[in-house]
Design a protein around this nucleic acid. Structure first.
Lengths: 198, 198
DNA sequence: CCCAGCATGTAAGAGGTTACATGATTGC
DNA sequence: GCAATCATGTAACCTCTTACATGCTGGG
């Protein structure tokens, strides 16, 4: 597992307080690794004790104090170590799939609102990603190796864009599947109607 | 959460022992909801106590005894209740994405073997799914509502096929993304080589 | 005055992983 | 004899979620 590493990478991108990180995990990195603030504070404390990060308290006038964390040299080398270490792909855990298989023994029609809900959510996320794409990555060419050196900023951006593109692909796949499945369920409702009355 | 429900659905499809379920969770349902045997035994015990399932010990001659579980009436109604209850889509947790973003602060080249590994795994799974598709769902037409009634078996099969198709879509998406990302990383290695010596 | 937002935590419990434990049979 | 497969579990540990707790500020 590695909320630890998700936080380290986040802190490398920008030193932050726990609160800021928690908000960042509702967007951005959080699209690919979710965490609550309680968890974040605990892991930050553990990592500070381990010496991977160091927190500096900033007294706020007219605002609460905040602990600004940044990654130490040890933390950086931990990230490098982790990058080189192989990781297995996470298994899928999708209750919708289980429900679909369960629908054969219950009311498949009951899944229609559920699927519509999922379709809407995935459509929303896709739109959000598209907005980010247009805003932040308008000028990044896809995969072409690039003839002249494009600098270190474009390097980081290219990687971030690639992450975003996985999100886009993912949401689009879901969206198409939801459409298809809704079509199927509407068809099945005709074919095998549930007993109409009690 | 719902390993409970995944097990119930599995048992509805076929009454089984814990051991059998554990093996089934390495294929089939397990592609969409993973679980170890330890966990399965614990949940089965809990569900039996709750009265959702009942286990019947079968004495084996020349084989160990096994407890064959089947879903009770209460269990069935629990499934129906759960089917109608809305569920949020599970959040993604993908360390590869975090790693890609982290690669901007480390050695992006170190991710190449990792990505090749992922590509191979997703390619394997995709092939496995395609085999199942060809074997079990050769004659199922995609989404067309079907003019004449096709019976209750085709009903269940259509749902199972739809689940499989989500798996196919998922693996294919990953595969394409891995290819694309490998192309990008090979390009970047040229553009921004890491310091060659210590 | 109350609610929303900023900011940081503690505590209990459910869910999940890893390691350990046992005992029988079949095939090499 | 030894490894693999069948078959069922216990125990320790870690992660993650949910609920609770505190205190300050600015706007309606």
């Amino acid at each position: 597992m590695s909320l630890d590493h998700a936080l380290l990478v986040s802190l490398l991108e920008k030193p932050s307080s726990g609160y800021e990180l928690a908000r960042r995990f509702d967007r951005s990195i959080g699209y690919f690794w979710h965490a609550t603030h309680q968890q974040i504070y605990k892991v930050l404390a553990r990592m500070e004790e381990a010496g991977w990060i160091s927190g500096e308290v900033q007294a706020g006038e007219a605002a609460p104090d905040r602990k600004l964390y940044s990654v130490s040299r040890t933390g950086r080398s931990e990230v490098s170590r982790w990058l080189a270490e192989p990781t297995e792909p996470e298994g899928i855990r999708d209750s919708l799939m289980v429900k679909l298989r369960g629908a054969a023994f219950g009311d498949a029609g009951a899944l229609i609102p559920e699927l519509e809900h999922h379709r809407a959510l995935h459509a929303n996320r896709l739109t959000a990603y598209r907005v980010i794409e247009a805003r932040d990555f308008a000028g990044v060419r896809s995969t072409s190796p690039g003839v002249q050196s494009t600098g270190t900023l474009d390097y980081q951006r290219a990687l971030q864009y690639q992450v975003l593109k996985s999100g886009i692909r993912y949401e689009q796949g879901w969206l198409e599947w939801c459409e298809e499945t809704l079509g199927l369920l509407h068809g099945l409702k005709q074919v095998k109607p549930r007993r109409p009355s009690k």
